[in-house]
Structure formats: C-alpha cells, structure tokens
Nucleic acid binder design. Structure first.
Lengths: 170, 170
DNA sequence: ATTGACAGTTCTAAAATAGAACTTATGGTC
DNA sequence: GACCATAAGTTCTATTTTAGAACTGTCAAT
C-alpha cells in the first residue's frame, strides 16, 4: 500500500492513521499538549533527528493539526501550536496514555497523574455513549455501513466471504 | 532513537506507541474488532505484505494484545483473537475513528455508523472524567508527575528550562 | 570579528518495507 | 499416483524511510 492513498480510504480509522499513524507524530503531539512549541525544544525533548522533525511538523501543518505562528521578526521565527483540529486529538492521546497506565506500567507506577480542574480530583478517562451516557465496550457496539461506505464491499464482511462473492460473480 | 527502548520510557504514551504506533498495527487491530481472525483474511482485506503481517502479528502476540488459538489439527492452524488487554484498546480505536469522522470525512459522509446495543441508538463516543462524569478537554486537565516519573526531569518541564538547569549545574 | 541561538537543510549509512516467489503440510480430484 | 487447492507462513531483491552527524543562513550580543 502507498501511504499517500491511505487518507482517501473509505475508513475513518485509516484516514486518521494517515495523520498520526507513524511512530513520531504521536510523540510530537504529546509534547504539544505539554506546551512545547519550538523546533529545538521538540528536538531536545524527543531526541528525534532534525530531518524527521522538520518533515513531521510540515505534515502536521499540512493536515491542519498544527499552525505556524510567528513569535519574532528579524530573524523570522515561528512556533507550532495546536489548532482546534489538533486539540480535538486529546481524547486519542488520553485513551492511549490510559491504556499504557493500565497495561504497561512497571513496578514504580504511573509516570504522570492527571487532575481534572473542574472537579479537583485525580481521574482516569472513561469513554461513554453520547446518547445514554453508559460506558462503552466493544461487545455492546454494532457497526453499520454509513453513507460514505464502499458500495460493493461492506468493511465488516470477512475477506473469505468477499473472495467467495467475487468468485461467484465471474 | 531505537524503537526497542521505547517501551521502557517513563511515559505511558511512549510505551503504548511501542505496541500500536506503527502504520499497520492499528489497521490490523481494526480488522480484529471487525471479527477478522486468520492470516490470509488479514492479508486480503488489508493488502499488507505477508512478511510484514507475520511480523506484526508476532509483535502483537508478544505484547499480549492478541492470542494464537488453534482451530484445527493436521495441519495445525491458528487464528488470532483479542485478549482482554487487546479488547481494552477499544477506546483508542473508537476515539481515532471519531476524530476521522469529524475531521476527515469527504462529501459522502461517514463510512461506518455505530449503534449502541444497550440503548439502541446511533452514537458518538465521548470521553468523560471518571470522578465527576463531565466531558474532558485538554485545557481542563492539569498534569502532575506520578510515582513512576523520571526523577530529575519532569516531563512537563520545557527543553529550554532543562537545558538552562543543566548549564547552571556545571 | 567572533560567538551563540534558532530553524532548518544536506549528506551517507543503516534499517524497514514492498512485491513477488517459494515452502511445508494436508486433503481432495482426475 | 499426479495434480491442484488451501492455509500460514518464509525467503529473496529492490525501493523507501530513518538515523546520525555536519552544514547553512539570519540576526543579536560581546
């Protein structure tokens, strides 16, 4: 698969993976949420090569996740800040951090704790249904093809079934 | 950075990225949640090379996200199913899909719709605080170093500040 | 005039990935 | 018994991506 076709796939996961699905992008975004904004700061705190960092920042700007804002003239310098589209990635970041907290911590415990300013308590993120407010689990969800689905091959048909249909239609 | 050191970083995001942070792993997991279980089915529905698929499945098994279950003897054949650790990735998958639904759909609309069996309605996932139940936003959260934090350099200190401290301490 | 900060760009070597063919074990068909 | 198909990989070479380090261009301060 060519990765530049990924963003055109009829799948919201694939399109999002086109934006954040490489090893560095999520780490760069973590730094953004921790208030890192400048090239050399990203480079120093991540240890990413300057080449790759320049490339990834360019990509995130192209996708509208980050915006380049000048913070001084002469010489012109920019910093990278999250757009609303970028801020909307927060639930992704938080659910990734939470999974790591539950399944990947060592004996010393969590590297970070999160306080909810609204209620003042340390919390974990919980994913709930927008309609009834109940916590979500994979088994309680049923998937339907939407208006943007691929016509002839619903994503939830198994490859085996599709292969069979293809064979019959020849 | 060497990617095999990523899982030892004192950061739950980095450790999770070590598991799911490459382009294919998330797509493979999407197929798992859509009930794909067998090697050739993954290969056919994703178009991934067999080499890479074998490698990624091995990695996901090693991390305890998938389990290899025999479904026939002679010749011995296995299928890959999600463990509880793997099922717990569901909020990550859902928040990625949701971001794509909001920010990456084309004119035709969403490829998939999700129905919550519990309440019978089409829904979106919402991330809320485990303590007060309010929806979460990046700005309402404050980060503290936890017991597993790196001693001398809290993750939220900027690279600039750290560089300054390092310079002063020499 | 030299030094240092910042934001990149350029270079080569090493690693990962794509794409296709091959392997092993078994069961069914002519 | 020879031949074909299925399933789950493995092996091979060519291409692409990434790592690591050095270099460039602007400007300010010494």
């Amino acid at each position: 698969m060519k990765w530049d076709t990924l963003e055109e796939e009829p799948c919201s996961l694939a399109r999002t993976v086109a934006v954040i699905g490489d090893r560095w992008s999520l780490l760069i975004l973590r730094e953004c949420f921790l208030r890192i904004r400048r090239f050399d700061d990203f480079q120093a705190s991540l240890g990413i090569t300057r080449h790759l960092l320049a490339d990834r920042l360019k990509k995130l700007v192209r996708f509208g996740v980050l915006r380049k804002i000048p913070y001084q003239e002469a010489p012109k310098r920019y910093e990278y800040i999250l757009t609303q589209k970028g801020l909307d990635l927060y639930p992704i970041i938080m659910s990734i951090v939470h999974w790591g907290n539950v399944h990947m911590v060592d004996a010393r415990g969590r590297p970070l704790l999160h306080e909810h300013k609204t209620c003042g308590k340390m919390f974990d993120p919980v994913m709930v249904c927008s309609e009834c407010g109940e916590p979500l689990s994979a088994k309680a969800v049923h998937v339907h093809p939407g208006p943007g689905a691929r016509k002839s091959s619903p994503v939830h048909a198994s490859a085996r079934e599709r292969a069979k249909r293809a064979a019959e239609s020849t």
